[in-house]
Design a protein around this nucleic acid. Sequence first.
DNA 1: GTAGAATTTCAATAAATTCTGAAACAACGG
DNA 2: CCGTTGTTTCAGAATTTATTGAAATTCTAC
Lengths: 204, 204
Amino acid sequence: MPATLPVSPLSETAVDHPQEPRTRDPDQLLRLAQDEFIRRWGEMGATWGINRTMAEIHALCYITATPQCTDDVMQRLNISRGNASMNLRALCDWGIIRRLHRRGERREYFESLSDVWEIFSIIAAERKRREMDPVLETIKRCQQMLDESSLGKAAARQPQVQATRERLANMEEFMSVTNKIFQQFVSNARSGLNRVVKVLLKAL
Amino acid sequence: MPATLPVSPLSETAVDHPQEPRTRDPDQLLRLAQDEFIRRWGEMGATWGINRTMAEIHALCYITATPQCTDDVMQRLNISRGNASMNLRALCDWGIIRRLHRRGERREYFESLSDVWEIFSIIAAERKRREMDPVLETIKRCQQMLDESSLGKAAARQPQVQATRERLANMEEFMSVTNKIFQQFVSNARSGLNRVVKVLLKAL
DNA sequence: GTAGAATTTCAATAAATTCTGAAACAACGG
DNA sequence: CCGTTGTTTCAGAATTTATTGAAATTCTAC
């Protein structure tokens, strides 16, 4: 890497101790602020089971509010073309960024959805479908396995069996309610989820 | 390992295609049901950024509703002593399982909290603290960097800067509201969160 | 069509995470 | 004290996940 880059790729400064900006140049400050956000967003994503790079790419598209092409992403995040391509596609599959074609240009650009609530509701819906629903199914199957009709009356009354059945039931109730809340978020996202959430907060 | 174990460790059957139980022996069926739950819970944990084994250990303690010692965990999940010890400690640190001493016994046992709502609220509180709060801080710092007082009036009016400021503001609002909801869950967990959530669902 | 710019794919590799096992440590009864 | 039983720690091994880079493919302007 050259000693000084005109505009360096995402700063390596630790998020917890960001160095004070040494410059008043507005462009650089803007970039520093964006980089800090991108870095932190990537970290958070990582702890929530989302590939750090994917989270960073989305953060970049979101925070700049400007369509980014593959090369923009590669250069800014300092990643390979293949990596950029695969994660951009994954983000498109999720539906939280969109492809953008420009007249007379071969190159494709990507832009983030602008509505945070919509972004969140898409993610929530998908994770519910992929991760909560299968657990609920499993719980139901486990409950069947411990039914009187599977075990017989005597066995079904064993304390061990009763205890497990109760725990399964509690967990099922919890997950059902959680699922419903997710559902509500999702179905309300388009029409002012904002307001809906305020209602919710008053109710609590 | 002996050729046949009286009760085998956690079955390796894929969760998606569990084999039909071949036995009507209630003890084995109970164990099969528990194993299926444990396995699925571990998978879900993994996609949410929680170590699969840690999630499985917790699932084991929860679903059996019976205090488990280190050797129980090792044998049932087929993991090493070190692994069991470290994950049990981590779960204790989170506060979702508890150590249990028995009179005249050296060995320590571990039991899960029984209230699912409490378990969830502990996890939510901790993740909020560790992962949401730092992002909010970062957003605020980024906003400061793009203040008029940092950039000067002219620069602060550049469209690029304005756009980033708006995105930061939207994200901040979203995260603040999410944080408040988390907060509410947590502070209500002890006294019938259940009811609270029902209120919430009506409000939506 | 076709040139060539842009994208996708994927085997190889690198990085990060998780797990093991054995040694060190602690607690207790005698 | 010492022997026994049980727990913790942690360096290295194993496993999983992420990334690269170059070849194959696709697309579009002409």
